[in-house]
Measured scan of single mutants.
Amino acid sequence: EVPFKVVAQFPYKSDYEDDLNFEKDQEIIVTSVEDAEWYFGEYQDSNGDVIEGIFPKSFVAVQG
């Protein structure tokens, strides 16, 4: 069931425009499960802007 919160276990950096880049310990709200390997989610950056994109499930852990 979406949405749910995950926390980055590792930093994720990608050159693909659709990917969500983040640092370790970033909290991310997952709004869609793309497939067995990928989530789609969002978070607010330090400027208060909402950043969204896809990212690999293996880089995050589900909270709770």
Rank of each mutant, 00 (worst) to 15 (best):
E1Y: 11
E1F: 14
E1P: 11
V2I: 11
P3F: 06
P3D: 02
K5T: 12
K5F: 08
K5M: 10
K5W: 11
K5L: 11
K5D: 00
K5N: 06
V6K: 01
V6T: 04
V6C: 08
V6S: 00
V6P: 01
V7S: 04
V7W: 09
A8P: 01
Q9Y: 07
Q9P: 02
F10P: 00
F10N: 06
F10Q: 10
P11K: 09
P11Y: 06
P11C: 12
Y12F: 09
Y12G: 00
Y12A: 02
K13Y: 13
K13Q: 09
K13D: 05
K13L: 08
K13E: 06
S14D: 00
S14G: 08
S14Y: 02
D15T: 12
E17Q: 12
E17N: 09
D18C: 15
D18F: 14
D18P: 09
D18R: 15
D19N: 14
D19M: 14
L20C: 05
L20A: 02
N21G: 05
N21M: 07
N21S: 11
N21F: 10
F22L: 02
F22Y: 01
F22S: 01
E23M: 07
K24M: 08
K24T: 07
K24V: 10
K24R: 09
Q26G: 02
E27H: 07
E27C: 11
E27G: 04
E27S: 06
I28R: 01
I28E: 01
I29Y: 07
I29W: 15
T31V: 07
T31G: 01
T31N: 05
T31R: 08
T31I: 09
T31L: 10
V33T: 07
V33Q: 07
E34R: 15
D35R: 09
A36T: 11
E37W: 13
E37D: 13
Y39M: 03
Y39N: 00
F40G: 04
F40Q: 05
F40I: 06
F40H: 10
F40K: 12
F40C: 09
G41C: 05
G41N: 01
G41F: 06
Y43G: 01
Y43K: 00
Q44Y: 11
Q44N: 08
D45G: 08
D45V: 08
S46L: 11
S46N: 09
N47S: 09
G48Q: 02
D49G: 07
D49A: 12
D49C: 14
V50F: 08
V50W: 13
I51R: 14
E52S: 15
G53C: 05
G53D: 01
F55R: 00
F55W: 02
F55L: 01
P56G: 03
S58D: 09
S58H: 10
F59Y: 13
F59G: 02
V60H: 01
V60C: 06
V60P: 00
A61G: 07
A61W: 10
A61F: 11
V62D: 07
V62Q: 10
Q63L: 14
Q63M: 14
G64A: 12
G64K: 10
